[in-house]
Every structure is written in C-alpha cells, then in structure tokens.
Design a binder for these strands. Structure first.
Length: 884
RNA sequence: GCCCGGAUGGUGGAAUGGUAGACACGCUGGACUUAAAAUCCAGUGGCCAUUGCGGCUGUGGGGGUUCAAGUCCCCCUCCGGGUACCA
C-alpha cells in the first residue's frame, strides 16, 4: 500500500471545493465563535514562498481543531493588492496594474488551495476591488468628519465640535479653519520625505536610519508639499493604555510603547532679555532648572528670526541654510559631532534670574516638544557634549549617588556628566521661594513643578514621539481620495452615495510633473464642475497601502454587503479577532494604524470593540542555508557541491562555509512551495513547517527534514490504510495509554501553538503502534482525528478508509481519558548528590516511607553510602535524591 | 548608546528547578535484494573502559543560590531584531 499523496490531496481538495466544506455560517445561535486571521498577503509576481504557509498552516491547524471542538470558525483570506510593483510593471509595459494584480492573485489562490488550507473562499476580498475600497474611502470621510474630544477622550462627529465664540465672530473662513484644525484627517503643507527614484513621498516610517527608502534602497530628500495627514497622536494615550489588555508578545507591545514614546515633564517659559518674547521649552527634568546654562532653538523655530541679534544675523542665517540642506543621513552620521550658532541674545532663567545665551542647533528638533530646550550640560549627555565643544558653562546641581570619590569630584566640578539620581546642590533661591537642596530627583521634580505652576511660568506636560501620519502617496495604484479641491481654495469630500470613486483608465502610468501622481494626467477624470459652475480638481494623491489593510478584518465579516460597510449584528457576533498570526515586521506600523482606525470607528459606534485583535502571535522567519567563502563572499546555491558533509565551490573548488541566511534571489536559496508539494506533498509541507521548531523562532529550511515527516505520514498510511491492521475489541493497554497521552499532549499543544512538540507526540504514538503492528478501530479513529488538522488530506482519506462517509472536519475532537493516562508503576530515577545513577521500578503513589525503605535496601544505592544512613529527598512520582 | 530576544550533539530541535539531548534528520552496522531504492532492526554527545558492570565530562564563559540548575540570581562574551540627537 503506497501513500500516493498527489492523488489523495487532489481528491480531497476537489471534495472541499465542491462541497464548500469550509463555508462559514453566520449562525449566531452558536455562542462559541472563533475568528482566526492571517495577515493577508501582498500578491507579488513571484508567487508564494515557504514563509507564507508557515503562519497559514498554524492558523489552519487551530481553525480545524476549533471546528472539531464545536466552534463556529471564521477563517477568511484576501489580497492586499495595491502596491508599487504592479504600477512599475505598468510603466514598463503599459499593462494595467489590475491585470497584473489579478494574475498574481490567481497564482496565490491556486497555491494556497494546493496546501489544503481551510479558508472560506466565499469571503475572499481584494483591496483593489471598488466594492472594497468604496468602504476604505467611506472610512476616510469618517476620519475627516471626526474630531477628538479631549474632555471625554473619544472621537466625535465634527458637527458636535464646539466652536469658540471669538472664532465665530471672526467670520466663516476662521470658523472653517478652526474646524479643519480639529479634524482627524487634514490637508496641509508638510515637510516630507521624497524619494527621487520612486518619485514618491514616503512616510517617516518608510525611511530607514541611513536615510534610504525602505522600498527601493535609494536616498530620500526633504520637500515641502501639500499632503493628507491623520492626527493619530490624539489617540496616543489610548493606543498605549490599550496594550495592557492584549494577549500579544511582550516584545511587540514594547515596540509599540517605544514608538508612541510617552514622556512626562513640564513646559517652562523663559523670558527673552530685551525682547517682549518668551521661549517655551519642554523638559522631562524641570528639577534641573538651576543647572540650565544656555538654551537651544531648533533651526526651524519661528523665534529664531525674531530674536537673533543684528550682529549675528548673517552667521545664523547661514547656519539655517546649512541645516535645511542636511538630510537625516548627515544628522545621524554626525550624531557625535554637534553643530550650532549663538543668536547673540540671552534668556532669563526663571529660578535664579541668570542671563543665559540662546543658541540655534540642529540637535533640537522642531517636531518634538516645543522645538526649544533649556540645556543642562551637567546632567544631560547631549547638552554636555555641546557645552564642551562651544565652551559654555557647566554647572553641576546634583551631587551623584556614588561612592567613587574621584568620579564624584569630577562631576561636581562639571568635568563629567551625570544623568542619574543624587542630592541637589546649588539649587536654592530663597527670594523666589524655591529650594531643592538636599532632595532627591523624585521629590525635586514634584517640588519644582508645583512651584512653576504657582508662579504661572510652567505646567506639567505629557509628550509623545508619535507624529501625525502622512497619509497620501503620489501613485496611481492606490485608493483615490474622495476629495475635490475647488478653485476658491476650499475642499469638499464626495457624498457617500457617490462612492466608490474609481480610478480612471490611463494611457501612461508615469508620475506627473514635480512628483505629482500619474492621476494628474487623467484630465477627463480630474476636472469637475459643480451646479453653480464652480470648477474643481480632484485629489491626485492616492492612499498608502496601509489604508486597505487597516480594516480588512472587518470586511471579512460581511464581504458582499454593498449597502453598509458590514452588517452590525454580524460585527457584534464575530469581533474581536480571537487569534491573529503574522510576521513581526508589522509590529509597529500595520498593527498601530489598524488599532487607531479601529478606535476611531469604536468611538463613532461603527464597531463594538475597542481593540481589534485580542491575541497576536508572530511566526518566525523561515531562513535557508547559504554559502560563503573564507573571505565572506556569498556564493549562490547552484554553485555549491557537497562532499562528505563539506561544501565546495563548483568552479573554483574552494571550500565554503554553510551559513543560515534569509532566502533571496541572489543567493539562489529560495524554496518554492510548488516544488515541495510536487516532491513531498502538501501534507508534508504543512507538517514540516510545523515540525521545524517553535512557531515564533527563525529557523532554516532543510529539504532533508521534509523527508522525515513524509516518512511519518507514509508510516501512518501504511498502518491504518490496511484493513488487516485494524482490529475490533479491546485495545492493548500500552497502546491505549500512549494514545491518551498523545491526545492530551496534542490538545494542549494546539491550544498553546506548540505544534512541533504536538507532532513529535504523534510520532511517538505511531512508533508504539507500529511495534505492535495492529490497533483497534477506535484507536485508529482517535489518532486520525488528532492527525487531521495537521495533515488534513491524509486525515480525510484515512477517515474514509476506516469506514466513515462524512468529512472529518466537524467530527468531535477526542478527549483524553484520565484512567489511561497514569501507569501503575514507573521507572523512578535515583540520583546521588543530584546525579542520576540508576532506576528502580516503583508503584506510583507509594508512600514516602516505603520508597525510602526500598531505596535504602537497594544494593546499587548501598554502593554509594555503605553502612551510613544518608539523607534522602523524595519527590513523589518523580525522582529520589540521595544526599551524601 | 538604549530596548527586546537568543546561544543545548554533526544538523533542526526537546526538557512544570527533579533522569539533559524527546522527536526528526544525518551517520554507522545489520536484514531483505543479483544490485540499488524503499522498508525493517540495532547503534549514535564527547572522552576512557569494554570480558562484565561501568566511570569521567558535558547546555556560550565566570561566579552564586539549592538536596538538585539548560531552567533562578549576579557579571561577561558573542549573535539576531528594533530604535536612535525625542530634551
């Protein structure tokens, strides 16, 4: 009996397709729902790689398991199909991106079906489908029409925004401006990153540390352009607090926390000497105010022009120009070498009325805090470095908490920077009624903050690193904004009933002038005239790829609905997502953006939960072996010959080192799932990906390992597909115990996503059963059931061969029977001083005194302690330790 | 620099503080075969001993807690990921 996986897999894939086995019913009568979600893929032209099925198989096992446990399971799949490659291909060939996209989706769909993943294909969605992006546009209109009420901490309809009376008095234009300034979506000038190579604006998040574009690797530069922005910082606090309740990996939560970057401190006003101006600074260390010896304004700060002394004007202007030319690359490269210029003007330190110089330096960023700082060189590394370079005063006001006297003296003398806790010195001004001397940091902050507030020169303040989200791209292949810019300078959004606003057909997909979107060329589409003859131009930017993926999990709930975004009752039933599995590369962006949109929709009553994803899990990356020379040069895998476990360059004969690396075209170490399926079968592919190691770990692909799981499946088939091996009547006790242990282990492991050990447990059971050569029909059925979520094609086939006529997909999951789990005796290890020496067969649950007597009498034990009476530690049913 | 992970045989990996190396690959030997593949059986961390029992050593390195440490604590090295003039 040969295990013909190709035939079996084809047969059952057709069966599932024909019978719509995995079609999800909106059966609200079943209170046990389970919404399990994969991060939907971008359908690239190169098709699926083996990384995709890793997460999909994990969710498939859980989905199939939950169905067998009686859950109503929602398991959908779709395509995040807007994106650059299809557009670039269109530029080169003139092929419409939709054509390319659909072709790629077809490939992905075929490949996914060939893995036997149990998706409900009737719920397939595609972000480029107008029936889908109609609702993406609809959400955008909602964002535009929402403001954030900081009193109740929630988003509200813009119609409910209270407009101050003086604004109303100032006229309609002022009123309009005020309202626009509060919308969650706004259109404004933005200093943005521009990629000259892609001819596209990039979000901050898309620019790498080295100043290159994440997508193409080329340098980006800064530009000032009108862009759509989303005011995500309003939700910073809720995005931060919401993390607490989520069952997400700690690392991901931490990354989101860091990204949001909450800090507490105070804003403090400094008078400018000789000008009727104040410099407002943000500081997390108001307690170090006595140590502030100079101030710094960001080059972009509006006060720079006002307060620069005439004598310094030229130097300052030159500096501003130089700073504006600097890319972030230069700024980071020069991270250690600070630059700046003196404005010639002084400010007054409010605690001691000292005159301190005001400088301009690009290490202070306009985008964070107030764009101005008070510099405390004695207690801030950056300020210290700057002060040393430019010879500014360094006044120590905090005696450090250390015993090293030499270091302490250096710090007090202002020769070294100290940022930790200590005791304040030189921090007293009785005239002003403020004394910090003798306090520690915590008390110091509280005392000075209260003083600042009382004096009306400072307020406690929370700051976030999170910035407004740049939400437009100069692309064709994205969701058009439902926006018209009128000739009178106003903006209006389309009426909901006019959605979707579809993309026009284009002859060429080249970007427009000055980096404008290709849509600028679509003149018929572009210009509109309203009833009164007013002319307008449509927004030519499109939305970023995040837009479609921000809410796709909601559309799966009711994908065909063209009246509403989704049916409210269905949303209430299915949300939130119970388990979401995908790569860690989306740790911050996708997951933060989605949570933001979700919270806005929650505030507006569109969704019923505050958070979308209850449990998140990140699969590790699948790597592959690659080869490099002694000099470290990478060698493509087709240039490598193996001999006696060593690797040689086919041409040069040089011995190569095997390394583990990401799969890449250049290393020619990409594994294609189609090949794996044709050689080993889909069930083997699934099983191997789960058996390789823990789901969360990065691990290298090794074809030899696939053979091992194929062997296991073939052995299962050989044992169970042969009627002669299936007996009726009572089961052998050893097999029975092994079976129930396996059921328990596999059940627990699926719940905890420990698939590798679940599979090894099944292997152990099979080895036991193969030794006996026969199992009862009941045993066979139980084993087939627990195997089926992992290897569903084989599961169905064996289920049929053991006399069943229905699909195994909804057969109740077996339960481990406690009676069979415990043996009556066990091999008890006996260790001496913690080192295992021998084993004794002992009845389970034997009283400790009896265990002790048996051990003391054993001659193998006596060998160690002779006639002495040793101390014996007994861990019941576990181990015995003899202490000498 | 900071934050978060990680380091266990030839390889992937397993181990509620309680028998380190489950399971699998690979390798070695054997059975079957004209032969090979497939399959089955046995062995397989290292060192020593092997006529028999066995002994020593071993989870990146160094300390510590414990009857007992891969697991807990302290210090260090290396690797991976994130992030960076955020005041």
């Amino acid at each position: 009996m040969d295990y013909n996986f190709s035939e079996i897999e084809k047969k059952w894939q057709e069966y599932w397709e024909k019978n719509k086995t995995f079609k999800t019913s909106d059966d609200f009568s079943n209170p046990n729902k389970f919404y399990i979600l994969d991060m939907f893929p971008y359908p690239s032209g190169s098709g699926l790689h083996v990384g995709h099925p890793e997460g999909y198989t994990a969710t498939d096992i859980v989905a199939r398991y939950k169905r067998m446990r009686g859950f109503n399971v929602l398991r959908p799949m779709g395509w995040d199909a807007f994106g650059l490659p299809a557009e670039q291909y269109a530029i080169q060939t003139g092929t419409h991106p939709a054509v390319t996209t659909n072709k790629n989706c077809d490939t992905f769909r075929r490949q996914i079906k060939e893995i036997g993943l149990s998706y409900d294909w009737d719920r397939e969605i595609n972000t480029t489908d107008p029936g889908y992006f109609k609702w993406t546009q609809w959400i955008f209109i909602r964002l535009y029409n929402t403001w954030y009420d900081e009193k109740t901490n929630r988003g509200r309809d813009i119609k409910e925004l209270p407009v101050p009376i003086d604004v109303i008095k100032a006229g309609d234009k002022a009123r309009e401006e005020y309202i626009n300034s509060r919308r969650l979506a706004y259109y404004d000038d933005a200093q943005i990153w521009y990629c000259p190579s892609c001819r596209i604006v990039c979000a901050n998040e898309e620019v790498l540390n080295d100043g290159t574009h994440e997508k193409c690797g080329n340098r980006v530069s800064k530009r000032n352009l009108k862009q759509w922005m989303l005011r995500i910082p309003y939700y910073a606090e809720r995005l931060l607090n919401g993390l607490e309740s989520l069952d997400w990996p700690e690392g991901i939560k931490e990354m989101q926390r860091n990204w949001i970057g909450r800090s507490t401190g105070a804003e403090v006003d400094f008078r400018v000497d000789g000008y009727n101006e104040k410099i407002c600074v943000y500081t997390t260390r108001p307690d170090t105010l006595f140590g502030a010896t100079y101030m710094v304004l960001a080059p972009e700060h509006p006060l720079v022009a006002k307060i620069t002394a005439p004598s310094m004007r030229q130097i300052v202007e030159e500096y501003l120009i130089a700073a504006s030319m600097k890319s972030d690359l230069d700024r980071t490269d020069l991270a250690k070498e600070k630059s700046g210029v003196f404005t010639g003007t002084y400010a007054i330190n409010p605690v001691n009325n000292k005159k301190i110089p005001v400088w301009v330096a690009d290490y202070v960023l306009m985008g964070y805090g107030t764009g101005a700082i008070m510099a405390v060189p004695a207690h801030d590394e950056r300020d210290f470095e700057f002060a040393e370079k430019f010879g500014l005063a360094i006044d120590c006001i905090l005696s450090p908490d250390i015993t090293d006297e030499e270091q302490k003296n250096r710090i007090i003398a202002g020769k070294e920077c100290w940022t930790e806790d200590g005791e304040y010195i030189n921090s007293s001004n009785p005239e002003a009624g403020i004394t910090l001397n003798g306090l520690n940091k915590e008390k110091g902050i509280a005392t000075i903050t209260a003083w600042l507030e009382k004096k009306g020169i400072g307020v406690p303040r929370v700051n976030y690193k999170l910035r407004d989200w740049l939400f437009s791209r100069q692309r064709y292949w994205g969701e058009p904004f439902p926006v018209i810019h009128w000739e009178d300078g106003t903006i209006s959004l389309l009426d909901e009933n006019d959605l979707p606003l579809e993309l026009p057909e284009l002859a060429v997909y080249e970007p427009g002038e000055n980096g404008e979107s290709p849509l600028a060329n679509a003149t018929d589409w572009l210009y509109v005239t309203d009833r009164n003859g007013r002319r307008g131009r449509r927004e030519t930017n499109t939305m970023p790829q995040w837009a479609g993926s921000c809410w796709y999990y909601l559309r799966f709930i009711d994908p065909g609905n063209n009246k509403e975004i989704f049916d409210r009752a269905r949303e209430k039933y299915w949300m939130p997502v119970d388990l979401y599995i995908g790569g860690a590369e989306h740790a911050v962006l996708h997951l933060l953006y989605s949570r933001f949109w979700h919270k806005v929709m929650f505030d507006l009553g569109i969704v019923s939960t505050d958070e979308p994803f209850i449990k998140l899990f990140n699969q590790g990356m699948i790597l592959a072996f690659a080869y490099e020379t002694a000099a470290g040069a990478k060698v493509s895998s087709d240039q490598v010959t193996e001999k006696d476990g060593k690797y040689f360059h086919t041409e040069t004969g040089e011995e190569l080192k095997q390394i583990v690396a990401k799969m890449s075209k250049s290393l020619k170490n990409v594994v294609n799932p189609d090949d794996v399926i044709s050689r080993y079968g889909a069930d083997s592919l699934r099983l191997y990906e789960m058996f390789m190691g823990p789901l969360e770990a990065a691990k290298p692909w090794d074809d030899k390992g696939v053979k091992g799981v194929l062997n296991f499946l073939a052995r299962s088939y050989r044992l169970l597909a042969n009627h002669e091996n299936i007996t009726e009547g009572d089961e052998d006790p050893e097999i029975l115990r092994s079976l129930h242990q396996t059921i328990k282990k596999v059940t627990d492991d699926i719940e905890n996503l420990h698939f590798n050990t679940a599979i090894s447990a099944m292997m152990i059971f099979l080895n036991t059963a193969m030794k006996k050569g026969k199992v009862t029909r009941d045993t066979a059925k139980s084993y087939i059931k627990i195997l089926s979520p992992f290897a569903p094609h084989l599961g169905e086939e064996l289920w049929q061969l053991t006399g069943n006529t229905t699909t195994i997909a909804f057969v109740p999951w077996p339960v481990a029977d406690q009676r069979y789990l415990k043996a009556s005796t066990f091999e008890c290890p006996v260790s001496v001083n913690g080192k295992m020496r021998f084993k004794i067969e002992l009845p389970t649950n034997l009283p400790q005194e009896e265990v002790r007597a048996i051990v003391l009498a054993d001659e193998r034990a006596r060998k160690w302690f002779g006639d002495a009476t040793p101390k014996i530690i007994i861990v019941p049913n576990r181990i015995v330790n003899i202490v000498l």
